[in-house]
Amino acid sequence: MTPEEKLAELGLTLPEVVAPLASYVPAVRSGDHVYTSGQLPVVDGKLAATGKVGAEVSPEEARELARTCALNALAAVASVAGGLSNIVRIVKVVGFVASDPAFSGQPQVVNGASELLAEVLGEAGKHARSAVGVAVLPLNAPVEVELIAEVR
């Protein structure tokens, strides 16, 4: 099953690449790798939620938002790699979680992104990862995800 077919089976569609908020591009290909810029949980051009995880945003909601970030990252990779089917594997994921000072569940939040990548790409979606708690993210987003993909 292709990654596109797997997305459809999951009831998802690859979104349009999210426009940059500043002076950068969503993804850059260098040789056999694509590096994405940080992807926010933007749906239909709007940020899906704002606030700190563990305060205004629940960990469960943040996990879903991380899935959205990963979907946006896949769109960015596909845009410079000629489609999802050209992804050989996801090499590295970095997830940033805007966290209430008492919140320490960043790995579980970023699992939302990791699990989506594995669902869509199978073994090729399994990756190395960092999950980092931060004070604030652009636009007061709760989660941001970036990734590195090996491509054909």
Rank of each mutant, 00 (worst) to 15 (best):
A113S: 07
A75R: 01
I90W: 10
R89W: 09
T68S: 08
L14D: 04
D100P: 03
P142A: 11
G95T: 10
P59N: 11
P26W: 05
A75Y: 01
D100W: 02
G83L: 03
E119K: 15
S130M: 11
L40Y: 00
S85R: 12
K92M: 10
S58I: 10
H127G: 01
L65F: 14
A62I: 14
G125M: 12
I87F: 03
L74F: 06
G133H: 08
V28D: 06
V17E: 08
E16S: 15
A141S: 12
V77R: 05
A73P: 07
P59L: 06
L117G: 02
S79W: 03
Y24M: 11
F103E: 11
Y35F: 15
A62W: 04
E146C: 03
G82R: 06
A141D: 10
V145R: 00
L121I: 05
K52V: 01
K126P: 01
V134D: 09
R29V: 01
A81S: 15
L74S: 07
G125K: 05
V25T: 14
L139G: 05
A75F: 02
G125C: 13
V43I: 13
L147E: 03
L14W: 12
P26M: 05
V42M: 13
Y35M: 05
E115A: 13
G45R: 04
R63Q: 15
F96M: 03
E5I: 07
V145C: 02
S23T: 14
V109I: 13
A75N: 06
V97L: 08
I148P: 00
A19C: 01
D32F: 06
A62D: 12
V34F: 06
A149G: 04
V120R: 03
V43Y: 09
G95H: 09
V93C: 00
Q106P: 09
V91L: 01
S114V: 09
K52D: 03
V57W: 00
E61N: 13
S23V: 07
K46N: 10
S130D: 11
E56L: 13
S58C: 14
P142R: 07
F103M: 07
N86K: 09
E61D: 15
L40F: 01
V43A: 14
L71F: 05
P138V: 09
R29A: 13
A76T: 08
F96V: 00
N111W: 06
L117I: 13
A8V: 10
P142N: 13
